[in-house]
């Protein structure tokens, strides 16, 4: 079975505490519900969520959409945002989890990566180093979301050309963001092959693409 691996990296630093993280959770939940209504996604999409603040946590490894259960996501009171360490972890997970084609094994589709932050990497040195490594991992697409007014877009721009800003961090904005993510996953499911880049669906009004 060919799987479409989808990685979600979620900032859980102190500033996300309260409404923002709850909104993210609601957003992810509705994204999962939406994807489950798509027969192709239901059979192929596998999701992993990794959160990062001072610590990097694998909320769950690559899991088939139909088996997925969203556990609680907690945030510390305060502390740094170790985005670099999160990307390091992501790389090792991808190496471990994403199957490449061999004569004996069917390869997965190229994975998708979504990274969301409301701040900026505290471990900027590690962050700058790991970017090259992430790019070697052949993601079909890397989508970065800078949520809220304090999110810095410059570091994200180094990671990918697909950087979007989300002005407000309320539940309706996140819901729309994750709706868009699910649309994108559905597109990703169907259009990998001849073209190198995914054609992304039109983002909702709440999101602005940073050029």
């Amino acid at each position: 079975m060919r799987r479409l691996p989808v990685y979600l990296l979620i900032d859980t630093s102190g500033s996300m505490r309260g409404e923002p993280i709850e909104s993210v959770k609601v957003g992810i939940e509705s994204m999962i519900s939406t994807l489950r209504q798509d027969p192709y996604a239901l059979e192929t999409v596998n999701i992993s969520i990794i959160t990062y603040d001072r610590d990097v946590k694998i909320i769950f490894p690559l899991t088939p959409l139909d088996e997925l259960q969203l556990p609680d996501i907690v945030t510390p009171d305060s502390g740094p945002t170790h985005t670099g360490a999160a990307l390091e972890k992501l790389c090792s997970q991808v190496e471990k989890e994403v199957k490449l084609s061999t004569p004996e094994q069917k390869g997965d589709w190229m994975p998708l990566l979504f990274i969301m932050t409301d701040g900026h990497p505290s471990d900027i040195m590690i962050y700058n180093q790991v970017i090259k490594k992430v790019k070697q991992h052949n993601f079909a697409s890397i989508i970065a979301c800078a949520a809220g007014m304090k999110a810095k877009v410059e570091p994200l721009k180094q990671l990918t050309n697909e950087v979007y800003s989300l002005d407000t961090m309320d539940s309706s904005s996140f819901k729309k963001f994750f709706k868009w993510v699910s649309d994108l996953i559905e597109v990703g499911n169907k259009s990998i092959g001849a073209t190198d880049e995914l054609l992304l669906p039109t983002p909702p009004e709440e999101m602005n693409r940073i050029i």
Partner: peptide, 11 residues
């Protein structure tokens, strides 16, 4: 003709 990932081939 196949590549490392699913769906990769030659045309």
């Amino acid at each position: 003709d196949g590549g490392e990932y699913a769906g990769q081939t030659r045309f």
